[in-house]
Amino acid sequence: MSKTLKSQLKRESLVKATMNLVNNSGFHATPMSKIAKMANVSPATIYLYFENKQDLVNKVYIEVKGAFTTYAFATYNKDMPVKTGFEIVWKRIADFKLKKCDEAMFLAQCDNTPMIDEASRQEGLKHLQPLLDLWERGKREGLIKPLSPYLLYAYTISPLSFLMVMQQRGAFQLNKNHIEDAYQAAWNSIKI
């Protein structure tokens, strides 16, 4: 195995361990020593890739947010009609949150913690720009309520995190009908 591949595998192992521990224990109960142990690397190895815990968490957040938005916008085209584009993006986000639970849970944790620094939050927000642009176009075309992007996100995307958590706990099993109902509720909450 090449040195580059070994290095890449170690870094990936650290990223997965960080997500797993944060999802199960929270940020503050996830010391670097536990991350290293779960990743099966020495604690000193972490510092080859990350300056400190803050840097590790911020970089994992940006990396996961990038993968999330790449997935969300993979079949989206900015020239689509607003409703069609929103449906495609929303359903891809739903699919990601339900299929990539570890990553989605980690992002949900990040949304609710002061652990992520502001520069990283802004970097993460840039990844959502196509959705923000779609909403702006929808407002201009008189299709979407003139609400803050935060409110639009709260009404349309945030409920997916709740549904994901309920599914993870075994309280509710989502099927295609539920996804369609949830999409219709999301669209109806923001359309004029």
Score class of each variant (00 low, 15 high):
M1K: 05
T4H: 13
S7F: 02
R11M: 07
A17W: 02
N20C: 06
N20T: 14
L21Q: 05
G26C: 08
F27R: 04
T30K: 05
A36L: 09
A36P: 10
A36Y: 06
A39L: 01
N52M: 08
N52C: 04
V60Q: 04
V60I: 12
E63V: 02
A67M: 10
A67K: 14
Y71H: 14
K83E: 11
K83W: 05
F86H: 00
F86E: 00
K91R: 15
R92W: 00
R92K: 11
K100P: 03
D102M: 10
F106K: 03
M115W: 06
M115I: 09
E118M: 12
A119E: 15
Q122N: 10
E123R: 10
G124D: 07
G124N: 07
H127C: 12
L128N: 13
L128F: 14
L134N: 03
P149T: 05
L151A: 06
A154M: 14
M164T: 12
V165G: 08
G170A: 07
F172L: 15
Q173N: 14
L174V: 15
I179P: 01
E180A: 10
D181Q: 12
A182M: 10
A182E: 08
S189W: 01
I190M: 00
I192F: 06
I192Q: 01
I192P: 00
